[in-house]
Design a binder for these strands. Structure first.
Lengths: 336, 336
DNA sequence: CTGAAAGCGCTTACAG
DNA sequence: CTGAAAGCGCTTACAG
């Protein structure tokens, strides 16, 4: 492999100068810069990132820690990852997807090795042990999601308030007056510590009364079957409901199927609007779902940028909340 | 950060000796080994993987190259990745997911930097330009999937012959005599170069006649909507069909929905059996799909092991073909 | 079985 | 603006 010495020799300069033009860290005259660049091109030089990492004490690798045990890695997660990877690459970083448990032990191992400059944490719990691990090891990190205590933590998240406001406003505008929210399963240990359930339910309970709507909340775990079952309960206990908001994306798919099995047409008899979903997932049903589209691409990018600023010691980015936006499909319409 | 010098000093040995016990590369007496290990434990030492990589010219990082542009990263891909990551970790390697285009340019960039010891290629095309890139740069690699020309290429893949044989045998055993295969879209440039379509269709055309079955093949692209549309064509043109084999997993979901919309019950009127699908995806429909389960975990592990053997100069693993196995659900049954 | 020392390919004060 | 040199934290012949 050709190295810096080869390049320097051919250009008639020192390796320091080659490093300076490569990194733009010191002024170099146009003439010698040109010679060096020519020499690099001639030789097909590519800088060795490992040597750079050792010398600069910065690997330019950041990890996206994903709790694969608690959360299926589906389309939403893929969106977060690919947009984060793009954002990282644009700033000369590599983004590594790192499956971790939620107790922080694998994270300790990861950051102890000096492989990564920082960590983007996904699917953050309200009280997340991994945050403590990262703080103790003084590893730069950014959260996608939010813990309860947020002082000074760099984070981006979904704006659940705006998302729910927009969703209810949209359905109300269509004429719906009897809504229901399908939220998380109270028996699931994840439920009470998982931001999306907690925050969207809180927003719903706040916003629905503002529209003079009764608040109906059904619990439901995160599977297609559970969503189907929830619809059976809804139709039995709240037969007047004309539109359903639903948090979990797997349950949402089951909800549509469940309504069809009950002989109800979507959206003629009842509208279905998932609060957080990726378009790829929405396209899996027939008809395709109308959704509040998870802002995965935005959040993946913003989280990565926030982290990189931190790694490089730049001014921190302020926390950002991004609402899910209405993404049209065919499961919402005026009430019957 | 505590380094090897600190450990060596506290144990009263040289850093070479610390390295020897850490890597087991040279014999060390039990006594000094104990001292070194005690010293590492006391100091909370963690070896710096970057320095190790530079000195040993081996990063212990392998990349899984995923063509994110051509293939949605769904549940199947997630299965490949997580099992590969586990297999890598067990052998002291890190597995990085790397989104690449299918032309090989990003791959050139990746391997040129010296970051990775080798590459696992996913979603390999029959004539894949990325293979040439890896060969030219002398990068160790393993394929999940197969090119047409395979001489000497380390690879693992689905055993399409056995998968299709088992699927047809199963349906035939239930009593079905009129099958159809829903394959790829002939207009899609991917179709003619994508192994799963080409090989499963070939297997079907070979096996169906062995059972005395007529061969019915419908083309269909890889989306839910396309699957729905294919069912409309099937019912119109081949109304006697009692069971459907379907290659693409997205189309398979649409097929079930499409049949329901046509007023046909699954499986009472018609059975549906996807040939390659992950259980998480099969659980999205109601009723859950009976599937031939993609052997993602096995292939991810085998591919990674094959690559690591190559990186370490061990005897190569012979190519392995793994069939998809029947995974019971509720979309197959005896014909009406 | 153990150690002294060279070297992996860069970056970065420091000096000029 | 450019260069000589130390150093990042390991591994690995080589010698004993």
């Amino acid at each position: 492999m050709v190295n810096m010495r080869d390049v320097a020799h051919r250009a008639g300069v020192s390796i320091a100068t080659v490093s300076f033009v490569l990194n733009g860290t010191k002024p170099v005259t146009a003439a010698t810069r040109a010679r060096v660049e020519q020499s690099m091109a001639d030789l097909g030089y590519r800088r060795n990132v490992v040597a750079r990492a050792l010398a600069s004490r910065r690997t330019h690798i950041i990890a996206m820690a994903y709790p694969a045990l608690d959360h299926k890695f589906g389309f939403s997660a893929a969106e977060f990852f690919t947009s984060a990877a793009d954002a990282a690459r644009k700033q000369d970083y590599h983004l590594v997807l790192w499956p971790v448990g939620n107790d922080g032990s694998e994270l300790t191992e990861l950051v102890g090795q000096g492989l990564v400059d920082g960590v983007v944490l996904m699917e953050v719990q309200l009280d997340d042990p991994r945050v403590a691990v990262l703080q103790k090891t003084a590893t730069p990190f950014a959260l996608i999601g939010r813990t309860s205590a947020l002082e000074g933590l760099s984070h981006v998240d979904i704006d659940f308030d705006r998302t729910v406001e927009d969703a209810i406003g949209y359905l109300h505008g269509l004429g719906h007056r009897q809504l229901a929210l399908i939220s998380g399963n109270l028996n699931d240990p994840l439920f009470s510590t998982y931001g999306p359930y907690v925050r969207s339910e809180a927003a719903y309970r706040r916003v629905a009364p503002e529209y003079g709507l009764e608040t109906v909340v059904l619990e439901c775990s995160g599977s297609s079957l559970a969503g189907q079952d929830a619809m059976a309960r809804l139709v039995r206990d709240h037969p007047d409901t004309t539109a359903v908001l639903i948090v979990n994306e797997f349950a949402a798919l089951g909800a549509v199927a469940g309504l069809n099995r009950l002989g109800l047409r979507v959206p003629d008899d009842i509208s279905v609007l998932p609060l957080l979903m990726a378009p790829e997932m929405a396209a899996l049903t027939n008809p395709a779902l109308t959704i509040m589209r998870t802002p995965g691409p935005e959040l993946g990018q913003l989280g990565t940028e926030a982290l990189i600023r931190q790694v490089e010691g730049a001014d921190p980015l302020p926390p950002q909340l991004v609402p899910a936006k209405l993404y049209p499909g065919a499961t919402t319409g005026p009430p019957r």
